[in-house]
Write a protein that binds this DNA or RNA. Structure first.
Lengths: 216, 216
DNA sequence: ACCCGGCTCCATCTATTGATGGAGGCGCTC
DNA sequence: GAGCGCCTCCATCAATAGATGGAGCCGGGT
């Protein structure tokens, strides 16, 4: 195995980073970049077109998230192999990406050698999760899952809503909002809504980007 | 002007991104990468050693922040020219970097052509701030400055402390804490501590990284 | 059928938070 | 030295937030 050239698709929205990656990989023996995509939708198009052996993918993408792309492609091509490549290390994203079927998770701080070694390893059928990431996953395991409703409430809290506003927004009573808050505080291991908000952001449960714009 | 080769120093902690940038720039006519640094301290060493015309620098660096590096180097070499290159667009960092003397601020999403054009422009003595960034700066201008004490309190709020805990931590009375909170809420344009916390994170006033570890 | 977990609601009580107005000290600037 | 902004403290009040315990409904699984 590994005799043939490894065909790679690079999905990354930052032009310079993507072009840099392509430049770096194309000079490596046995690796060929067969396609590039700058957003999630393009990623799927490019995947179908080139059927790469390995897809190097960032999770933060315009139009469709990396996690969604992985899920979607794996439905069509269960054998597809993904290496997640990202700067961000929010626990939640790591978890979701691996759930979706990513074989490896690399932070952008790794060396070129590590990247290449990982590409070869994953192509050979192996998985690779760095110790630092494995650590976070282990920590996460202890964490209880939030119920859908608790998640809704948490989202509103992060967006700065009061209990009354949340009640109106979700069309439930304020008492129920408090009930949900009470249980999510417990699950997150925090003691008040402010801690819940920062924890949610820090762990990537609620994306920071959702704060930028007021809302429709 | 512009006859000679532009000597560039690349400061970026992510290996693949840095190597990608170097690879991209070195094939450009009239630009030569004379040095690389992966953290703030190394950046200063490399600057002294190579005296580059342009320093391409990320703000998020280990050991010493990009803003500190710019300030430090500008004290020694007031003519030094910096182009800030970052993914993150927290208002506060933009402001501080430009204050410190950066001539241009680019997001990593730009194209290679834009990057090269900016390097040439800055070398020719011009400045370059993209419209999106200028926009944020303008918005920021309307914002009142927080006093040192208000900042201390805000920091504690983001870290999930109660008023009582903040009072103890800062060795002031709870009443004083409330006074500070009241005025910082006004300055931030929010109505409660939870909104203050998310706003602080979103605007980059309190770095998200400070949440990772509890603290000594 | 029974049980369990999630979602809903309720009432009650306490603690925390935020608003307001007033007040003295301190250091800087005009 | 008068004025100004910051920091400190105080008291008081109203609004929110959080804890607790109890309750009914529904859907899935044993």
């Amino acid at each position: 195995m590994g005799e043939e050239t490894i065909r790679v698709l690079v999905v990354e929205d930052h032009h310079v980073v993507r072009q840099g990656l392509v430049a770096l990989l194309n000079v490596v023996d046995g690796i060929e970049v067969v396609g590039e995509a700058a957003d999630g939708v393009e990623a799927i198009t490019q995947f179908r077109k080139h059927q790469p052996n390995i897809t190097l993918i960032d999770l933060r993408l315009p139009r469709m998230s990396g996690v969604d792309v992985i899920q979607r492609i794996r439905m069509e091509s269960p054998g597809a192999r993904f290496i997640v490549l990202t700067t961000y290390d929010g626990d939640e994203d790591i978890y979701r990406a691996l759930q979706a079927g990513a074989r490896a998770y690399l932070l952008k701080g790794m060396t070129t050698d590590e990247l290449i070694a990982t590409i070869r390893a994953v192509h050979a059928g192996k998985s690779h999760i760095p110790p630092a990431i494995a650590q976070k996953l282990a920590e996460r395991m202890g964490t209880e899952e939030l119920t859908p409703r608790e998640f809704d409430v948490l989202e509103q809290i992060v967006h700065g809503k009061s209990n009354k506003e949340i009640a109106t927004e979700l069309e439930i009573s304020e008492a129920t909002v408090k009930t949900h808050i009470n249980s999510l505080l417990g699950k997150l291991g925090v003691t008040d809504r402010t801690q819940a908000a920062t924890a949610a952001i820090q762990r990537g449960i609620v994306p920071l980007e959702s704060l930028r714009k007021p809302k429709p």
